[in-house]
C-alpha cells in the first residue's frame, strides 16, 4: 500500500499548436492511493475529462509523467498500454456503451474476450459478476431491453469482470434519474468499501462527489482545491438501501468470490 496506484508529475496537455493552442491541463502533480475513492470535480471545460483520459492511459500527455504502481507508463508501447488498461482498469461510462446486438452476458465479458480468456471461463466469470449485481436473470437478454439503471449495472459488471485495481467512472449517474442514481452510487461505493477497489469518479454532480474520500476541484486546467473526508450531507453506505447485498453479513463471501478470479487470471 506504500506506492500510490496512480501518480502524476507536472502533467500538461495542450491541444493544437501556436497561438491557437489550448492548454487543457497546466501541470498537475498528485497521487491516488490504493483503495482510495477520489472525485475529479469541475465544470465542463475545466479539464476533468482530459485528466481522466490521461490517468486511464487513453491519451498521452504533452509533457509530464503518469505512473502506474510507481512505474512511468508514458514511454510504453501502445500495445503494452492496451494490455495494462485491460488488466488494471475498469470503465463505467455515462452513455453505457453497450453493444445492442449482443446479450448482456456477451457485453459483460467483452474485456475478458479482449484479454483472450476462454469462452467457458468468460461465461463463468461473467455470470458471477452479473450475480454480484443481481442481474444474472437478464444474462441472456439483449442489452437494448434493459432500463437505464439496469444498463448501468451491466456496465459496472463489465468494469468489474477483470477484477481491476482502479475503477474509472465518467459521470456514471449522468443519464439516470435520482432514485436509480442512488442505487448505482451505492453499488459503486459498496465495491470501493467492501472490495478495496480504487474509485476515480469524474463528475460535476456535487452530491456524488461528496461521497468520495477526496475531491480534486478543477478549474481551467488546474486543481484549485483539494478536499478530504466524506461530506456530511449524503447518507453513509451503511444506511443505503442495499443493492449489492447486506452491508455486513455477505461481505466475506463476496470478497472471496472476487479474490477467486485472482489478479493473474485476467491476463
Amino acid at each position: 500500500m506504500s506506492t500510490p496506484v496512480l501518480e502524476t508529475e507536472n502533467l500538461v496537455k495542450v491541444y493544437g499548436r501556436g497561438p491557437a493552442a489550448f492548454h487543457a491541463l497546466k501541470g498537475l502533480t498528485f497521487e491516488i492511493n490504493r483503495g482510495e475513492s477520489v472525485a475529479i470535480v469541475g465544470k465542463s471545460g475545466s479539464g476533468k475529462s482530459t485528466l481522466m483520459h490521461l490517468l486511464a492511459l487513453l491519451d498521452e500527455p504533452t509533457s509530464g509523467v503518469v505512473a502506474l504502481d510507481g512505474k512511468p507508463v508514458t514511454k510504453l508501447k501502445p500495445k503494452v498500454v492496451s494490455g495494462l488498461r485491460n488488466a488494471t482498469f475498469g470503465f463505467v461510462f455515462q452513455q453505457f456503451f453497450l453493444n445492442p446486438n449482443q446479450t448482456v452476458l456477451e457485453n459483460v465479458t467483452l474485456p475478458l474476450k479482449i484479454a483472450g480468456v476462454s469462452k467457458s471461463e468468460r461465461n463463468e466469470r461473467g455470470m458471477a459478476a452479473l450475480e454480484q449485481l443481481e442481474m444474472a436473470d437478464k444474462a441472456k437478454n439483449k442489452a437494448t431491453d434493459l432500463s437505464g439503471g439496469q444498463k448501468q449495472r451491466v456496465c459496472i459488471a463489465r468494469a468489474l469482470i477483470n477484477n481491476p485495481e482502479v475503477l474509472f467512472a465518467d459521470e456514471p449517474t449522468g443519464n439516470l434519474d435520482t432514485a436509480t442514481s442512488e442505487t448505482v452510487e451505492d453499488i459503486l461505493f459498496g465495491l470501493h468499501r467492501d472490495h478495496g477497489i480504487t474509485l476515480v469518479v469524474v463528475t460535476h454532480d456535487e452530491d456524488l462527489a461528496a461521497k468520495c474520500q477526496r475531491r480534486l476541484i478543477m478549474q481551467d486546467g488546474q486543481i484549485v482545491e483539494e478536499q478530504t473526508g466524506a461530506s456530511t450531507a449524503p447518507p453513509t453506505a451503511a444506511q443505503a438501501p442495499a443493492a449489492s447485498g447486506e452491508p455486513s453479513q455477505p461481505k466475506p463471501a463476496t470478497r472471496r468470490r472476487l479474490m477467486k478470479f485472482g489478479k493473474g487470471g485476467a491476463r
Binding site: 486511464a56 487513453l58 501502445p78 500495445k79 492496451s82 494490455g83 495494462l84 488498461r85 485491460n86 488488466a87 470503465f91 456503451f97 453493444n99 467483452l110 474485456p111 479482449i114 484479454a115
Partner: peptide, 14 residues
C-alpha cells in the same frame, strides 16, 4: 463507438 469501446477496454490496434 464500438471500436472506441473495444480500444478503451484494451484491444490493441493490431
Amino acid at each position: 463507438r464500438e471500436i472506441g469501446l473495444m480500444k478503451a477496454l484494451g484491444m490493441s490496434s493490431g
